[in-house]
Amino acid sequence: MADFLSTYGSLIVSMILAAMLGLSLYLPLMSGQLSLAGAGFYALGGYIAAILSTKVFTTYSGDLYPVSYVLIEMIVAGIAAGALAVIVGILALRLRGVYLALATIAFVEILRVLSLNIDITGGAIGIFGVPQPFGTPIEYLWIALPMLLLSMLFVYRLERVRTGRALIAIREDELAAESIGINPTYHKVLAFMLSAILAGCVGALSAHVLNTWNARQGTFDAAIGHLAFVLVGGSRTFAGPVVGGLALTLLPEALRQLAGINGLPPWLAQFLREGRLILYGLLIVLGAINFPQGLITPAMFKHHRAAKDPTT
C-alpha cells in the first residue's frame, strides 16, 4: 500500500485538485452561467502563492515550508480572486449565454498576456523553486482532501437552502425567478465569486504541488480541460464535475499504463501516450452531442432524496 501511495501520490493529488476545479466551474453553472474564467482565477491564485513563498515568506525554520504559510497564501489568494471576481462579475454578468462565455474567455486571455509581461510574475518563464511544505507528494492530501470534502459539503448544503434554490431558479428560468423577487445579478455574481475563490485557493496549493508556476497554467486550454470535467462528469449535480475531474485526470495515466501492455501495436501505444488531448476533444464533442447532462445525472440520486423527506 505504501508503495502504491508513493508511486501514485502526485497523481492522486492532481486528481483531487482537478475535481475541485470542476466543482468551481459547477458553481456558476448552477445559475446557468457558462464561465471559462476559472482558469484565470486559478492562475491568479498560483501566482500569489508563488510570489509570496519565493519573495515574501522567505524566512522560516527547517527544510520544509510551513503549512501555516500555505494556508495563509490560500486565504490571500481566495480574497484576491473573490474581489476580482466581484468586479469582473458586476461588469460581465449582465451578459448571457454565448456573450458571457466570450467575455470570460477575453478576461482569461487579458490576464494571461498581463502575466507574460509583468516582472513580478517572471514573464514568460514564470516562477521557479516554489518551496514544498511536505516531503512527499502524497502528503499534500492533508490539505487537498479536506479542501475537496469541505467544498463538496458546501455545494451540497448550498443546493438545499434559499440561496441555492435562487441560483437554480435563475438557471431554469431567469425571467420567472426575477418575477418572484430573486435578484439575478446579485446571485450570479455571488456564484461567480464563490467559484473564483475556490479556483484561486486550488491555484495557490497547485503552485506548491507543481513547484513552479507560469502563464501556461491559466490558459484557454486549461479552461477547456475544466469544461471537459463538467461535460463528461455531469452538469446537473455537483458530484458530476468531481467525478469528471477525477476520471479525466486519471485517464491519461491509465492510458499510459495501457500503452505499456505487451503486444499493443506501436502506433496505438504512441497514441495513448501522446494523443490524450485528442481524446479530450472527442469526449467533449461526444459529451455535448449525446450526454449534455453528462454521465452522472440527478436521476441517480432522486429516489434517495424523496425517501428521506419527512413530509412524504
Binding site: 477547456i224 488531448l277 485528442i278 452531442i289
Partner: peptide
C-alpha cells in the same frame, strides 16, 4: 441550445489542433 454547439465546436478545435501536433 446554441451553447452546446459552441462547446461541441470547441471539442472539434481541440481534436484538430492536437491531431496536427500528433
Amino acid at each position: 441550445d446554441p451553447l452546446l454547439a459552441l462547446v461541441s465546436s470547441l471539442g472539434v478545435a481541440v481534436v484538430i489542433v492536437n491531431l496536427i501536433q500528433y
